[in-house]
Simulated assay, not measured.
Amino acid sequence: MRKLILFSVLIFLIIGFFPQKVVSNEQAYQMIPDEAIRLRILANSDNEKDQEIKHAVRDAVNQEVTKCRRYG
């Protein structure tokens, strides 16, 4: 009986040392500036080729926007 109690206490102590991940809606909220433009690029499907095209378009748009912000 004594071994069972010691084992239980040990288990509770071990579990207590692991941090619990708590996510609240307040932490997930991100402030978006008024001058921000949100652009959503959608692929035709989950097909690998369609996803590659989507990423290429996203990268090209990001590159142009970054270029315009530097010189604009």
Results as ranks from 00 to 15, higher is better:
1 M>R: 14
2 R>T: 13
3 K>M: 14
4 L>C: 11
4 L>E: 15
4 L>P: 13
4 L>H: 11
5 I>F: 10
7 F>E: 04
7 F>A: 15
8 S>M: 09
8 S>P: 01
8 S>A: 09
8 S>Y: 08
9 V>L: 13
10 L>F: 15
10 L>N: 11
11 I>F: 13
12 F>K: 02
12 F>A: 11
13 L>I: 14
13 L>F: 14
14 I>P: 04
14 I>D: 04
14 I>N: 06
14 I>Q: 04
15 I>P: 10
15 I>T: 12
15 I>D: 10
16 G>W: 05
16 G>E: 05
16 G>S: 08
17 F>W: 13
17 F>K: 15
17 F>V: 15
17 F>D: 11
18 F>Q: 12
18 F>E: 12
18 F>I: 15
18 F>G: 12
18 F>H: 11
18 F>Y: 14
19 P>H: 01
19 P>G: 06
20 Q>G: 07
20 Q>M: 11
20 Q>E: 08
21 K>I: 10
21 K>M: 05
22 V>Q: 13
22 V>S: 12
23 V>R: 01
23 V>N: 05
24 S>M: 13
24 S>L: 12
24 S>G: 11
24 S>P: 03
24 S>A: 13
25 N>T: 15
25 N>H: 12
26 E>I: 12
26 E>C: 06
27 Q>N: 13
27 Q>V: 15
28 A>K: 09
28 A>M: 08
29 Y>K: 12
29 Y>P: 11
30 Q>S: 15
30 Q>L: 15
31 M>E: 14
31 M>D: 15
34 D>V: 10
34 D>P: 04
34 D>W: 06
34 D>E: 11
35 E>M: 10
35 E>A: 15
37 I>Y: 04
37 I>W: 02
39 L>K: 01
39 L>S: 10
40 R>Q: 09
40 R>V: 10
43 A>W: 00
43 A>S: 04
44 N>Q: 09
44 N>C: 03
44 N>D: 10
45 S>C: 02
45 S>F: 08
45 S>T: 08
45 S>K: 01
46 D>C: 00
46 D>T: 02
46 D>Y: 01
46 D>W: 05
48 E>R: 08
49 K>V: 09
50 D>G: 08
51 Q>M: 05
51 Q>N: 07
52 E>D: 03
52 E>T: 11
53 I>H: 01
53 I>M: 05
53 I>T: 02
54 K>V: 07
55 H>L: 04
55 H>C: 00
55 H>Y: 09
55 H>P: 06
56 A>W: 00
57 V>C: 03
58 R>K: 10
58 R>S: 09
58 R>D: 07
61 V>E: 06
61 V>I: 06
62 N>S: 07
62 N>R: 02
62 N>E: 06
63 Q>F: 04
63 Q>W: 00
63 Q>N: 08
63 Q>C: 08
64 E>Y: 07
64 E>R: 00
65 V>N: 09
65 V>H: 05
65 V>R: 06
66 T>K: 01
66 T>V: 00
67 K>G: 00
67 K>P: 02
67 K>A: 06
67 K>E: 02
68 C>F: 14
68 C>E: 11
71 Y>H: 05
71 Y>L: 07
71 Y>T: 10
71 Y>D: 07
72 G>H: 00
72 G>C: 04
